[in-house]
């Protein structure tokens, strides 16, 4: 395995970089979009609720690879050409956002309804109540399950390999097929994924523990 790193190190680390970048974009994107659709799902306005529900149910129930392929192959036929990295990252963002929407929705709904009623009685608008009272409380509830989603996201980014996305899995496949050192190569690839996911795992556990023991800060 050491040899693989020595001879193909630059290729592996380049793949690592693309995986990290794609994951980072998708993480930020899916968190924003997912939270938005979670807010749609619990909105007092029915049309928004319907839109939220449809979005979640569609993208949660289609395989990630299919969504990614649609952006890689179908979209370019009608609109602009998209490279593999971008198509894969968009697919990953949309797919993950559906799961994040469900996670955030559940978190918001687990905040006591009295909190919203008190905020509204206090004169706050729905949006102010969400911003100052409900979401800050929901975030703490949502962090552990959200952490799982983010770890899944990093692992799912290997879908880029199918779309020539230059990610870690893509580079691994190339190295394995040129050197035939499949065992060493895929062990090296696995190790590099762990470098991203293990710290995330520990960070989540740390936050979970920290927030369950201490009171609350505004």
């Amino acid at each position: 395995m050491f040899e693989i790193f020595q001879n193909y190190g630059s290729q592996l680390w380049s793949g690592f970089g693309y995986t990290l970048l794609s994951s980072l974009y998708a993480l930020i994107g899916s968190l924003v979009i997912g939270t938005l659709f979670a807010l749609f799902e619990i909105s007092p306005m029915k049309p928004l609720r319907v839109i939220g529900k449809i979005y979640v149910e569609i993208f949660r129930n289609i395989p990630l690879l299919v969504i990614a392929m649609i952006f890689y192959i179908v979209v370019p036929q009608y609109f602009a050409k998209i490279d593999g990295f971008t198509a894969g990252t968009i697919g990953l963002t949309i797919y993950t956002s559906a799961f994040i929407a469900e996670t955030v929705r559940a978190g918001i709904e687990s905040v006591d309804v009295g909190q919203m009623e008190a905020a509204r009685s206090n004169g706050m608008t729905y949006i102010q109540a969400m911003r100052f009272i409900i979401l800050p409380q929901a975030i703490k509830i949502v962090v552990p399950p959200l952490g799982n989603q983010f770890i899944n996201l990093v692992k799912n980014s290997s879908v880029l390999a199918f779309l020539a996305g230059f990610d870690l899995m893509y580079q691994g496949n190339i190295i394995a097929s040129t050197t035939f050192k499949t065992t060493d190569t895929y062990f090296a690839v696995g190790l590099l994924y762990l470098i991203i996911t293990l710290p995330m795992s520990y960070l989540m556990r740390y936050l979970e523990k920290k927030w369950s023991t201490e009171g609350d800060e505004a």
Partner: peptide, 21 residues
């Protein structure tokens, strides 16, 4: 309703203080 509520306060059975404040 938001304007109206500025002038009408409410105290609840279960207090409903903001838990994060």
């Amino acid at each position: 309703m938001n304007k109206m509520r500025k002038n009408v306060g409410m105290v609840f059975q279960h207090f409903n203080l903001y838990a994060n404040k």
